[in-house]
């Protein structure tokens, strides 16, 4: 991999990140769509941008040669989902029952 190709990666990443950020910010004020739709799109933008940063800035990809850290990322994501999901499930349920 040479300088030009690696540089291109950063530039692509930057452009994509800027686009996604722009969409998310724009949707916050642009109120022609229902809140629910915009809510979902904004969250989707965040997740996409996460992937963009991973791919282009942190150079994480699905290549075979460095599986250790990929496994670790997936496992971390899984644990975070469990912990955060469980916490929100329990606490929101409690809030609801105390209404």
């Amino acid at each position: 991999m040479n300088l030009g190709r690696e540089l291109r990666k950063y530039v692509i990443g930057m452009v994509m990140a800027l686009t996604l950020t722009g969409i998310a910010f724009a949707l916050t004020i642009w109120n022609y769509w229902p809140v629910r739709t915009r809510f979902i799109i904004i969250i989707a933008c965040a997740i996409l941008q996460l992937l963009v940063h991973f791919r282009y800035f942190l150079h994480i990809d699905l290549e075979k040669s460095h599986r250790d850290d990929l496994q670790l990322i997936l496992f971390s994501a899984f644990i975070i989902a469990l912990m955060v999901g469980g916490m929100l499930w329990v606490i929101f349920n409690l809030n609801m029952r105390m209404m």
């Binding site: 644990i79 469990l82 912990m83 469980g86 499930w89 329990v90 349920n93 409690l94 029952r97 105390m98």
Partner: peptide, 18 residues
């Protein structure tokens, strides 16, 4: 072991399903 922590506070008041 990351999926069972609520058993320490079954009595806190969350729903029976949880």
């Amino acid at each position: 072991s990351f999926t069972v922590w609520v058993h320490h506070f079954f009595t806190m008041g969350q729903s029976a399903n949880i």
